[in-house]
Design a protein around this nucleic acid. Structure first.
Lengths: 154, 154
DNA sequence: TTGTATATTTAGGGTTACCTAATATTATTA
DNA sequence: TAATAATATTAGGTAACCCTAAATATACAA
């Protein structure tokens, strides 16, 4: 009985989750601030998430994830972490870009891709893995080759 | 003077490109069929792409990419290939899922991520790369570990 | 406790991207 | 060539998601 949420709704859940993790209460204003949207957009999204039983909310009150909302939010966040780690630690992309890209990809890839990506990270970062040396070599190789190809503008 | 296209418009360009590559002429019907949308959606998109000077088109006629449209379409397609190859060859995801995921990610990641992903593939697949052994080990390791974690349902 | 500041919601719009049904054009074939 | 089939376009509608401006509710402080 898995409900397929939009990227946007997943972002709202993830944001509420992150606010809750900081032992803070989630308010419309905070969510709006973090997501860079206006307050009425948050009110609208919360109304939908409430109907889906992902959050609890009374008018003008605080917002809390339900068990089901928490579960989904955690999944999204974990997927985010795997992607961001891969982009940053393996590909060597700067942390800001890695986070930005991860924020978009997290809503798109299926569970199998997520699972395998996490496993790849686990494998390549394991202390015993010969892969560690290989990753270091790639890193070196990238640094020496970087100027021949893509140049970051802006 | 880079114009930021929507995922949807990029898909239309990519589809026209792929039809052109088959030495076939692109018609509304074909594009609609490949993308799984109705004809009026294609007509609408073509109107936008024409305004952006990405395609040439006269009413009731064939559709052709302009130089600028071709350039963008190629970029999208190349990004697609890098992602699909990574998902399939490195992570070992079945080709259909890899293609599906790539179709979504291709519109999202920036040029640096694309560049580095391609370089990673280049490095890890190079005949001289010690990484090849490492990738093979990962593949083995995945096969032995796969049942402990995620199981493909459906 | 009453006035003011802050936070939230409602109301009303805009954009993108799809759809179906109806109309117009082009192509085919009898 | 005239009728029919195939294709493309226009018209009109829906849903998701965002926005600003205005109204409403709550919190705080004099």
């Amino acid at each position: 009985m898995e409900i397929r949420l939009s990227s946007s709704l997943e972002d709202y859940l993830k944001t509420i989750y992150l606010i809750q993790e900081e032992n803070t209460v989630a308010r419309v204003k905070d969510i709006a601030l973090r997501l860079g949207v206006a307050s009425p957009s948050v009110t609208g999204a919360i109304k939908v998430l409430k109907k889906l039983r992902m959050v609890e909310h009374n008018s003008y009150g605080y917002i809390k994830l339900t068990e089901s909302g928490l579960e989904t939010a955690k999944k999204v966040f974990e997927t985010h972490q795997s992607i961001a780690n891969f982009l940053h630690l393996v590909l060597g992309i700067d942390i800001e870009t890695a986070e930005e890209d991860a924020c978009k990809i997290e809503h798109i890839i299926g569970p199998e891709t997520t699972y395998r990506l996490a496993k790849f990270l686990e494998f390549s970062a394991a202390p015993s893995s010969e892969c560690r040396g290989c990753m270091a070599r790639f890193s070196e190789w990238m640094t020496t080759n970087i100027n021949k190809g893509y140049q970051k503008d802006k």
